[in-house]
């Protein structure tokens, strides 16, 4: 089986990368003055783990036929995906300054590669709840061709309110798609409030189980724990697997953590400064240095 064409990082490296991705997210959002803070910060550990350890992929050849497929169903998490893709080498890291701006490839919600040309994005997402079905179709197609590629789809927990996901869950188990692994970002927060206030999801694991899935739970901020769950999911035969990863929205930034009000807003200058002071610089280096005194004049 062909291996990933990227170098894998060890646990410590993945943690460093996750922190760097969080720094990138803060800077991207500060420049764009628009976008989601909470969710992207919350899944930085998962994205670091996926792109620097789990996925078989080749950033320099994004249509590599042997690649694993990754779908971001919760399209508003785009900033963490873009930062990760850039860090993995899919496109120049300086392009992160263009998030949500006119003529950018980094659309507010992920745009299809065909239309906007961003390598690494397989299909559009943003209107919630559509990724599961796409992943199911992809998994069925790969199985028809007897290919070993795996399919991953990441859902937000609030997104699970969408009925289409449950349609897709039924189809996945009906066809016993063990080449499909779903990941749920279980942060208990959505736009209006905490998830149990907006729409009760519990008992969530039981629901997935009753839909015929192999269910694994883990701490989405403990990288070894997450990798262990993914490893077990890969080994499980005959059923699709879901990794329900418990996370905190806004992880890494004290004043954002576990606060649903940070779902859809970017930090202002003072907040960004404070956030970056809590996220230590890493060996990977920032993609841009701000002139704080001039208040980002150069960056904008």
């Amino acid at each position: 089986m062909p291996q990933s064409n990227t170098q894998k990082l060890d646990h410590k490296g993945l943690e460093e990368m996750a922190r760097q991705i969080r720094r990138d997210i803060i800077k991207m959002l500060l420049i764009s003055e628009s976008g989601h803070s909470g969710g992207p910060l919350g899944v930085a550990d998962i994205f670091s783990s996926m792109y620097f350890n789990v996925l078989r992929h080749d950033p320099k050849n994004h249509n590599w036929p042997e690649r694993d497929y990754f779908f971001l169903s919760a399209g508003h998490l785009a900033p963490v995906w873009y930062a990760t893709l850039a860090r993995a080498g899919y496109f120049p890291i300086q392009e992160l300054t263009t998030l949500r701006k006119i003529n950018t490839r980094l659309q507010g919600h992920p745009a299809p590669a065909y239309t906007h040309g961003l390598p690494g994005v397989e299909i559009a997402s943003g209107s919630l709840g559509q990724g599961m079905s796409i992943a199911v179709g992809c998994a069925i197609g790969l199985r028809l061709d007897k290919k070993p590629n795996r399919v991953y789809v990441l859902h937000g927990d609030g997104e699970l309110d969408e009925g289409q996901i449950w349609e897709g869950m039924m189809t996945a188990s009906h066809y016993g798609l063990d080449n499909l692994i779903a990941i749920v970002d279980r942060n208990f927060c959505q736009i209006d409030n905490r998830t149990d206030k907006v729409m009760q999801l519990e008992p969530l694991s039981d629901k997935w189980r009753s839909f015929g899935w192999n269910v694994l739970e883990c701490d989405g901020h403990k990288i070894p724990d997450f990798l262990d769950a993914i490893g077990k999911a890969k080994e499980h035969m005959g059923k699709p697997s879901v990794v329900i990863a418990k996370t905190f929205m806004g992880r890494g930034v004290s004043f954002m953590e576990d606060d649903y009000r940070w779902h859809g807003v970017p930090p202002n200058l003072e907040q960004a400064k404070k956030a970056l002071s809590e996220l230590n610089p890493t060996e990977f280096g920032d993609f841009i240095e701000f002139d704080w005194e001039k208040e980002l004049v150069t960056a904008k």
Binding site: S133, I134, G137, C138, G168
Partner: peptide, 13 residues
Amino acid sequence: ADMMGIAAGLALV
């Protein structure tokens, strides 16, 4: 709805 998404995924591969 599921059918259309599945169709998209099949087309993708």
